[in-house]
Computed example of a mutant assay.
Amino acid sequence: MKIGHSMNAETFRHRSLLMFKEKVEKETEGRVVVELYPSGQLGTEMETLEAVKLGTVEGFRSGGFEEAAPLLEIYSMPFLFTDVKGIHNITRGPLGEEIAKAAEPAGLLIIATGDSGLFRHISNNVRPITKPEDMKGLKIRTPPMSTIVKTMETLGANVVSIPFVETYMALKTGVADGQENPLTNIVSMKFHEVQKYLTLVNYQYHAEMFYVNKDWFEALSEKDRGILRAAAKEMMLMSDEIIATDDAKCFEFLKDKMEITTLTEEQHAAFVKAVQPVYDYYIAKGMFTQEMLDRMREAASR
């Protein structure tokens, strides 16, 4: 079972995959041997996803991709979630399993869903951000992910497309005024050295999917399929715990490195209202339905 991913061997993703490897090999008594390929050794994320579809790679961990199933992008809608407990009600429950089934027509099974970093926040060098209008005119670096770009444009920011590894220098030189990322990325990339203002806006969450090739998985014995599913769920719980611990440590680290703003309930509500056109756009596009959004909000509030 070859498993690829884009992060290095020190990250939550690889550390939890090592546990998965040990558990699977032990419990299948060597019938399934797990080979891990971190740091993009098997290609870009899109290339690895395609390889899993084709069956030349058996497993892949990453965020949700529209190429796997448009519905997976629902997790990344702006301000959909207010806390991690609500998210886990979905990712660890029956609704998360239902959403995961959307990838099956592409030849993929998602056998576990977890966190791919916690909430994303916004930093910049121009002004504190406390209301949607503060975003207008800011040059914000984003990854090439449609829900991020659409959200930033809707808030009035000028989106700047810059590779992640070049973002530090872009912020330092003013090519970009700001960026959006989880706290763990802000610390690991040392963005705090070149950014003054940080708003804990909790504007977006990314899910982490464990994709496997459907035909390969279904050819395993029922016993081994059960072992892999159980190990995958345990792996994601471990992964989520690592992320939560790292996120808390990063907040403590950043407290005296940046000017941090936490939104009030009223300020948060203003952002929620401002991004409604993003929802209208994706519903009209057919990525998901209002009914599914309502079901997710209901499940998250339990």
Rank of each mutant, 00 (worst) to 15 (best):
G286F: 15
L109D: 09
M238V: 01
G117D: 09
Y75Q: 02
A106E: 04
I90N: 07
I140R: 01
A112S: 15
E50F: 14
P94Q: 12
G156W: 02
A232C: 07
M169D: 12
P143Y: 06
G107I: 07
I243H: 05
E10D: 13
T154D: 05
P38C: 14
G117Q: 09
R229E: 06
F251V: 02
M1P: 00
L138W: 01
T173A: 13
A299N: 04
M235W: 00
I148R: 03
T28R: 08
R297I: 08
K150N: 10
E45A: 15
H14Y: 11
N125R: 11
M19G: 09
T199A: 13
A112L: 14
V33P: 00
T184R: 01
N124M: 13
G156D: 03
T173E: 13
N158Y: 11
P38W: 06
F191D: 00
M19K: 12
F81S: 06
E208W: 07
T167K: 09
N213S: 13
A232M: 03
I129G: 05
V84A: 10
R297D: 05
F65T: 00
L171H: 07
V160G: 12
A231P: 00
S301Q: 13
P132W: 06
D256C: 13
I242Q: 01
V149R: 07
I260H: 04
N125V: 09
L220I: 08
P78G: 10
L263Y: 09
V84T: 01
P70T: 05
E166F: 15
L254G: 08
E259G: 12
L54C: 11
V165Y: 14
A244M: 07
V187S: 02
V194R: 02
T11F: 09
T262W: 04
M46A: 15
E153S: 10
M209G: 05
K2Q: 06
E35D: 08
